[in-house]
């Protein structure tokens, strides 16, 4: 493996990594809040709302993300909904990840003691005040480890976008590998994934520490 070759392929790999990171960040920004809202619906007393959301979660968790990507990009145009490649990927990822996050948050919500709601109720806090100030901060602490798992999965799942022709990190590596008949680019791809996930792990650890101030 010549160092010269490494520097030759790195720019295209970084370009792919840029797309991976962009998809990763935007998916999190969209799916975390959506997941919280869906989880509130899943634990709601309004039955029809709960059923609709349960079907949504079932669909999202019950079919491969790869299939969902194909469906959003190639399938939805049939009914007149057309997304650009990147937006299609984003929609599929947000919908898919929100479902997983919703289930994680649901578990967190259910572990909050009923006494917390009653404490807030007798102080006349409104539903949203209670959710925002009492419930969510406690749920976040509970769910960080599970959310962390999904976040790390997301970095790697982003490689599925090759199926709708987007050039992410893994695809950039693949292209270089088949062109130059060497595994070096894929080795570098592996290292870049490890680096990204290392950073994620570090950040998650910091977030966990931030919530360690109470028991």
């Amino acid at each position: 493996m010549s160092l010269h070759y490494v520097f030759e392929v790195l720019p295209s790999l970084f370009q792919g990594a840029g797309m991976t990171l962009e998809l990763f960040a935007l998916t999190l920004i969209g799916s975390l809040p959506l997941g919280i809202i869906v989880s509130l619906g899943l634990t709601s007393k309004i039955k029809p709302l709960k059923w609709v959301l349960e079907i949504y979660v079932w669909l999202m968790r019950g079919t491969p993300l790869l299939l969902q990507l194909i469906f959003v990009f190639y399938g939805l145009p049939i009914v007149g909904i057309v997304f650009q490649r990147f937006n299609a990927a984003l929609v599929a990822f947000i919908l898919n990840y929100a479902a997983y996050f919703a289930e994680i948050f649901r578990g967190g919500l259910q572990s909050i003691d009923q006494g917390q709601y009653e404490g807030a109720r007798v102080l006349r806090l409104s539903y949203w005040q209670t959710i925002r100030k009492i419930v969510i901060p406690q749920v976040v602490k509970i769910v960080i480890p599970s959310i962390g798992n999904e976040v790390i999965n997301l970095v790697k799942d982003s490689s599925l976008v090759y199926v709708i022709g987007l050039g992410d990190l893994l695809r950039a590596g693949n292209v270089a590998t088949s062109r130059d008949v060497t595994l070096v680019p894929l080795l570098l791809v592996g290292l870049i994934y490890l680096l990204m996930i290392g950073i994620c792990t570090y950040v998650l650890h910091k977030v966990e520490q931030r919530y360690a101030y109470y028991k």
């Binding site: 003691d113 404490g119 006349r124 406690q138 028991k215």
Partner: peptide
């Protein structure tokens, strides 16, 4: 909020831990 006429001290206190 104007109806806050009753204060409650719960058996388990129900303080907000965070």
């Amino acid at each position: 909020p104007e109806q806050t006429v009753i204060g409650v001290v719960f058996q388990e206190f129900n303080l907000f831990p965070h």
